[in-house]
Design a protein around this nucleic acid. Structure first.
Lengths: 108, 108
DNA sequence: CATTATTATCGTATTTTTACGATGTTAAAT
DNA sequence: ATTTAACATCGTAAAAATACGATAATAATG
């Protein structure tokens, strides 16, 4: 994956983490409930427990969420700091694109 | 793909379109040059012509770029209206998430 | 008209993603 | 000490994404 610049790769990793509806839904649920255990997420999603666990792992890998084992349950929540960091990088990039939008750009 | 709500699916489709570094790079190049022919994009990317063509097609499918055949060349540019539309949807969604970030949220 | 240049599409191989059931692990409950 | 509940991980099947060479299509060029 060294074909592209680091900045580009970082954004792509972020958008990739968000590229599945289940993972977006998970973030939404976690934001609403502040935190919840795995089971609550599984209840809401139309996917099996193991599949949800996999999606949780992916979000965890990129750091968007945190998970901590509490007894026999597993408590998840959003890592807001990381969330902001990634969102900001994405946003910077796309704001820069928008700046370059010219007015007389009828294009093609 | 009817498992999730339309709003969630739309965002996922957008992020999916941006989930590959090549496609992000293409958008960057197109923003910088306002418009360019396929060959110019191929020159810049570390991928074969056919692969780049495929990525262009995906961006075109979701409407982020437009392509028009001009003689034997093919002129591409960003569809800024669509770009804004998708970006706004994404942004709305994540701003809503951020609103729900509570201060006393030490989580887990 | 034949050739060349530009790009899209086809066929296909490889890799990655997605999904699920089965199993393993650990802590709580009985 | 068993049993149960909650969850992660494993194994694996199926689908999708990625990449490329070869070919097709079309317009410009000679």
């Amino acid at each position: 994956m060294e074909k592209f610049k680091v900045e580009i790769n970082e954004i792509a990793e972020f958008t990739k983490a968000l590229s599945h509806p289940a993972r977006i839904e998970i973030l939404k649920v976690l934001a609403e409930k502040q935190m919840c255990i795995c089971g609550e997420i599984v209840e809401v999603l139309p996917l099996s427990q193991s599949t949800v666990s996999q999606h949780l792992k992916e979000l965890k890998n990129i750091g968007l969420i945190q998970g901590e084992i509490e007894g026999k349950k597993s408590c998840y929540c959003i890592n807001w700091e990381r969330f902001q960091e990634l969102h900001d990088k994405y946003d910077d990039f796309f704001q820069n694109l928008l700046i370059q939008k010219s007015n007389f750009n009828t294009c093609c």
